[in-house]
Simulated assay, not measured.
Amino acid sequence: MPSLSTNTYGKARVRLVKVRRGDDQTELLDWTIRILFEGDYQDAYRFGDNSGVLPTDTMKNTVYSTARASSASSPEAFALELTTHFLRGNPEAEYVSVEIAAKPWEHAVINGSSHPSTFRLAGEELQTVAVRASRTATEIRSGLRHLVIMKTADSGFEGFKKDSLTTLPETADRLLGTDASAEWSYIGTPTSFRGIRQRVREMLLKTFAAHQSRSVQHTLYAMGEAVLHQVPELSEIRLTMPNLHCLLVDLSRFGQENPNEIFVPVDEPHGFIEATIRR
């Protein structure tokens, strides 16, 4: 008789907004959460026996109830609270995974000052966390998505392999843009996820800006190397950097020169570069 090889079930896209109220200002947390259980659910799949199945609606309610009592200010800390809670009450679950994507709300600046209770959404960039926990081990991966960055100097692409179908011209001066994602793992459990995230992001931007790029691969490695050098709490970082192509427009047919100033953005197709840098 066939047996159940793997199984996962849970609740996805649980939306949570929490206001943390302080004496002088408030903090706005906007998280989208996914919860997944893996474990001994053979009877549910084979025989329709739901006696060990926690309803996914209960998972959703647990998010809101836990958030009410939680003091967590980072998505990592909140994910750890949820995995601990679910493992404690569900012996059928061998692993519980909690993934959170956080929107970047920041205080609006009004008349030159940060307003204590008014916020603006600071772009499409997301903070991410994925926690996968059992009763004996916990894996934490933090990250960011949609870090959209571009540089207008110090980037080229030359000396690449060519064959009979190569039409791309070499260039020592091009725009380099990417919609970057990063995900990193920790050595142990940090005391300040927020501080580490800020340092990682700063190093990614600083290195991207300063690097004399010979390719996306070249800059990706430099960014990951710099993060591991400056943030000793990390064991590895994976970077995904698809190209945001901007192609130089040929203005010669109009009798005009184009000294690397007029470009057309092209979304598809685009180059896709990804690598993991590990200690």
Rank of each mutant, 00 (worst) to 15 (best):
I273L: 03
L234T: 08
A180C: 11
L126E: 08
E94G: 14
A79W: 01
P91R: 12
L228C: 04
L205S: 08
E94S: 14
E236C: 11
F119V: 01
T219Q: 02
A226V: 03
T138P: 00
S185E: 11
Y41N: 00
T32Q: 15
T219C: 09
E261D: 03
E27P: 01
R135I: 00
H107V: 08
W31D: 03
G188A: 07
E27G: 02
T66I: 06
E139N: 15
I273Q: 01
W105E: 00
T138N: 06
V53W: 07
A180R: 02
F160N: 03
L205R: 10
S51E: 06
A108I: 10
H245Q: 05
M1L: 02
I149M: 13
K18M: 05
D173K: 08
S73N: 09
H107G: 13
P55L: 05
V249S: 01
P190W: 00
L4S: 06
E81R: 05
P75C: 14
A77H: 12
K162Y: 01
V19T: 09
A93L: 05
M241D: 03
G224N: 05
G195F: 02
T84N: 15
G195H: 06
R68Q: 11
V17H: 13
T83A: 02
V98T: 03
Y186F: 15
L87E: 02
E99D: 11
M150T: 14
V14M: 02
A102W: 06
Y221H: 10
A77Q: 14
A108K: 08
T83W: 03
